[in-house]
Amino acid sequence: MKIEMKELNKVYHGGIHALERVNLSISGGMYGLLGPNGAGKTTLMRILAGILRPSSGNLSIEGYDYNTEKGRVEVKRLLGYLPQEMGVYPDLNAREFLDYVAILKGLDDRRARQRRVDELLEVVSLTAVARRKLKTFSGGMKRRVGIAQALLNDPQLLIVDEPTAGLDPEERIRFRNLLSDLGEERTVLLSTHIVEDIAQTCRNLAILKNGRVIFQGTTIDLIGQARGKVWIVTTSGDRANRPAGTITVVSTMHVDTSVQYRVVGELAPSDESEAVSTEPSLEDSYVWLMRERRTYEP
């Protein structure tokens, strides 16, 4: 599935620019959308899901023009959407809620619909609790209902907005694996501010900041940009020995009596004897990119 955005803008009432001249080209597989809170990711997801209209610019999905009502309706048939805050009717049970969503998605054959609901309850491991009211579900279970509802119409395009927020580590890993599996057969757009989620699932990504795309490419490209800028600095436990200079600390780890800092910076920290250059991770690269943009942007 091909998604093309050209000069996409979204201005909210009050003149808030949520998206500014966004140009993106997305094709099949898992695609990550990364950025800090307030970067415009959710706005972009909502536009793609047909909930918001762009203020200007062009958007086409699989050749359908999103600026027309007809185009939006056609895309909705191909779409599965898991919003950031997944809402449910608390008094319905999981099976009923999924059946209701399937109706709203246009699945008309009752038997086929019920089969699909049962199938997806199995996929997200909720069969045993399918008759329990949704108000008794935990956050993780509701997320699983969310992914099941998004898959009801077997969408070619799956949009998931911050899907792992609020999940415990085990649930998060489960969810990431599920998304990776889904990405083998369809386009999955994963929006998140958690770098690890992208690192584990996506080959291609875009990074948004203040409504603008500041990077678009592969995770390898992004990592390449930070090569030679990442250091491990080991100091004694004293806070006074914390690395100084024009660097950003990515992580701090206490090892016996010493402290190991992982830092990014153009130059090695002041006392080079203790700094060892290391291979950047995606998180290091993201921090590097954000740091660079903060330094040079007006």
Binding site: A49, G50, I51, V73, L79, P83, Y89, V101, L104, K105
Partner: peptide, 18 residues
């Protein structure tokens, strides 16, 4: 309040039908 409106808006069932 249940935040289902956003979800339903992304589906083919139109607002007037709902």
């Amino acid at each position: 309040s249940n935040r289902v409106d956003e979800l339903f808006e992304s589906m083919v069932g139109t607002l007037n039908t709902r």
